[in-house]
């Protein structure tokens, strides 16, 4: 019994050491959303966003934000405590490049199971293919204040 217990203990410690080595070496960032980035002047970015809203809004609001239906391609999203603006309505199956800029503090955009960190003054561009139907969940994954858990954007695939 004693030798069995020792063998089991050795096996457990060996497994732990292997797991530990894997953990320390495993900085693969598998949950990080691939993104391009560029520096941007926040005023220019707001101007581009407003122009997109003026050109593509559908005349409705979602939770106080204008809903826009931009053509496939570049889409601009302002990020600030505690909102992603505007609300997006996308064509199913089309590919969009979301330009995300934080206007105040560090936020993140968690889309599906992956996430990208959003630092002020740096635009992150992520590629998104709209699903056939339904919502794409986008929300902040970096604690940013008391309203953090309510910071959920609206992206919906509408035929």
């Amino acid at each position: 019994m004693n030798s069995n217990a020792r063998a089991a203990a050795s096996a457990l410690l060996l497994a732990t050491i292997l797991l530990l080595a894997g953990w320390l070496a495993g900085r693969t960032g598998a949950d990080i959303l691939p993104a391009e980035s560029y520096a941007a002047n926040p005023i220019d970015f707001v101007t581009r966003t407003e122009a997109m809203i003026a050109a593509s809004q559908v005349g409705r609001t979602a939770e106080g934000m204008p809903v826009v239906r931009p053509p496939p391609g570049d889409v601009y999203v302002r990020v600030r405590r505690w909102e992603f603006s505007p609300a997006l309505e996308l064509a199913p199956g089309q590919t969009y490049r979301l330009h995300l800029l934080s206007e105040d503090v560090v936020h993140s955009a968690a889309i599906g199971d992956a996430e990208v960190l959003l630092e002020p003054n740096t635009v992150k561009v992520v590629t998104l293919k709209a699903p056939a139907t339904g919502r794409v969940r986008i929300q902040c994954g970096e604690y940013c204040g008391l309203g953090h858990t309510k910071m959920i954007g609206s992206i919906e695939a509408v035929p």
Partner: peptide, 19 residues
């Protein structure tokens, strides 16, 4: 558990923390 295995369980958690 036998004492050796119980101690290995304790040590396994401590190893991760120490690293």
């Amino acid at each position: 558990l036998p004492a050796a295995l119980a101690n290995a369980c304790f040590a396994a958690l401590a190893l991760f923390a120490a690293a």
